[in-house]
Design a protein around this nucleic acid. Structure first.
Lengths: 343, 343
DNA sequence: AGCGTATGAGCGAACGTTCGTCCACGGTGT
DNA sequence: ACACCGTGGACGAACGTTCGCTCATACGCT
């Protein structure tokens, strides 16, 4: 693998018998005031020599890198992964590359990641990591140095927030359960300190209130977005309120753990306990049983983040609170009308 | 958000009353032949002005970007995602950034992604996308322009291949089933054109042969790494060989679909059909039932890829076939001794 | 007093591009 | 025959760094 040195535009130009600036015009430039014959010759030698433009040099003079940064959380949560992938593909569609950084599990290295991105002069940054809600250092860096769009609220504001309607998500899921006749409805939430958790919790309470039901505190158990956390929260719920007949889970990944815990506790889903979740990750329909869930437009969120960011980079004024994306209930087999206890 | 212009080292130097080259020495350089007082002053004004080094300019002169490219597949497969994330974190630990590109679903844009990475002058490329096994264009670009390490074999060779022992994986899983008394053992594979599929299939056959069993062709059903594909393959298997009592699945993601299809067909796992898979993705233990699976060191594979790549970038000669990483059977509840049909 | 030397800092060049201006040439119209 | 103009291409400058060399100063030594 004797790797060839990169050939520069100067070498191409020399070989084609033109100045390197002329070669630049035909190879990468825009308005070509060059004869067809010369252009052909330059193109041919470039091809022959295996010329690849050096975007580093280009970036230096143009003061723009056509690169955006993406700071994502540890990717244990597939929902975030899906938004990230969609974002990268959308960025590429617009000719941009994506530099990623995944937070460490503690989530304390956000500022380091952002600093590295800034030093690489990314044109903008997308944040898809719940941990940043607490990270004032990240927030300040973003406000000060570079256009950004976030999927989570950033302390102090100043960074547009894209996403879906979380409160509506909680409301939809819960009223679905109510509509099926359930009244002892528990919920396995995300971490309480997260906005999305509080919003979904509000939606849950909205629905209960509208049905004239109360929210006893012991029907709410805090999870951590992981299957393991979902399972633990479910065990707690079952212990505190054995009569529970339905659970609203704040994410599909946790729902895996919820279903698992229910299964081990000998409760059948949906006959004994109905489960509704949110996200609609791609394999929700392959869980056992197939999961009823509120679909959150993950990929679209990622794409919207990129579109907004690119507009912001282009100098356009973007609203700090763009319209929330709509959510939709997908009914599968994990929910069913409440069975009257036959004994 | 009146974004501040980036301040250059020249401005810092001017304000501190030194030449910009001197400022460069203390801010980014190595051997500082500068008085403590001057250094302090430069550092202070840099801080005051919010100076961030421009690595683009640095890269241009040093002819190295401290950036590696990662081409990954569409990330429907969580196993690949996990390797990617680990790779990124390992790279960052070594001071490198990561530029990612996710293949489109068809997987035909690999060369475009690689070209973009090359033009951005990444120091090396890691490939984590099964689709490249067919992509001679990608292989040629890698061989010609940039050090690379792949998690999948690349046509024509020349790119070191990291990974685990796939044949052993198939053997371990299958002989586990045999040890439990099963003999009608089917398998849901990955796409046949993939090496990993063929290796795991060989392991499966090795184990069967060692036990004196045959491999009727209708016990093998091809999947596509997705849960949906796994479910479809399972239905096929059930239809062709209703007497089947065990299934070896080539990935945990497909196992989701296998469990789902079995559940819908009314077959209990593990009592009626035992299921063993491979990967051990993080939520394998939360499937219903918890999945017996052969653990593949995903994160370690990602890290090894980076380490090898960095060594290759440093000019070290790396073997094209580094030792395969070991795999390990994790027994959970989806497998059990074969029940003698009691009727 | 004079020399050598260490120390601190300046300075030119280079990395590979883009961008705008300048120049030479040949053809056209009168 | 002359001025004029359009066309094709050259060329200098700049982007923000790093690297290596040069230079001035002051100190210690004989």
């Amino acid at each position: 693998m004797a790797r060839r040195r990169y050939v520069s535009i100067k070498e191409v130009a020399a070989r084609a018998g033109v100045s390197f600036q002329t070669a630049s015009k035909v190879l990468n430039g825009s308005d070509v005031r060059v004869s067809a014959e010369t252009a052909r010759r330059i193109l041919a030698t470039a091809e022959e020599l295996g010329y690849r433009p050096n975007t580093i040099a280009r970036s230096l003079v143009q003061r723009t890198t056509a690169t955006i940064g993406l700071v994502a959380s540890d990717a244990t949560d597939i929902a975030i992964t899906h938004a990230s992938v969609a974002a990268e593909q959308e960025a590429r569609r617009h000719g941009h590359s994506v530099l990623v950084g995944h937070l460490a599990v503690g989530g304390t290295d956000g500022a380091d990641i952002v600093r590295a991105l800034i030093e690489r002069r990314v044109d903008g940054i997308i944040v898809a990591a719940p941990e940043v809600e607490e990270d004032t250092e990240v927030a300040e860096l973003l406000r000060k140095y570079v256009p950004a769009v976030s999927l989570q609220a950033v302390p102090g504001g100043g960074v547009p927030l894209v996403g879906s309607n979380h409160r509506e998500t909680g409301r939809l899921a819960t009223s679905h359960l109510i509509g099926l006749g359930h009244s002892a409805i528990g919920t396995v939430t995300g971490p309480f300190r997260r906005r999305v958790t509080r919003s979904r919790l509000h939606g849950y309470e909205d629905a209960l209130r509208a049905a004239g039901l109360e929210t006893p505190e012991d029907l709410v158990a805090e999870g951590d977005w992981t299957p393991g956390g979902g399972a633990a929260a479910t065990r707690l719920l079952l212990e505190r309120s054995p009569a529970i007949t339905a659970i609203f889970v704040h994410s599909d990944m946790m729902a895996l753990g919820v279903l698992s815990a229910l299964f081990r506790a000998g409760r059948r889903v949906p006959q004994d306990v109905a489960v509704v979740s949110c996200d609609d990750i791609p394999f929700a329909e392959y869980m056992t049983p197939p999961l009823t869930t509120v679909r959150v437009p993950l990929a679209e969120t990622g794409r919207q983040a990129v579109d907004l960011l690119l507009r912001s980079i282009a100098g356009e004024q973007v609203p700090e609170k763009p319209p929330l994306l709509p959510v939709e209930l997908i009914v599968r087999a994990s929910t069913a009308p409440r069975e009257r206890t036959s004994e």
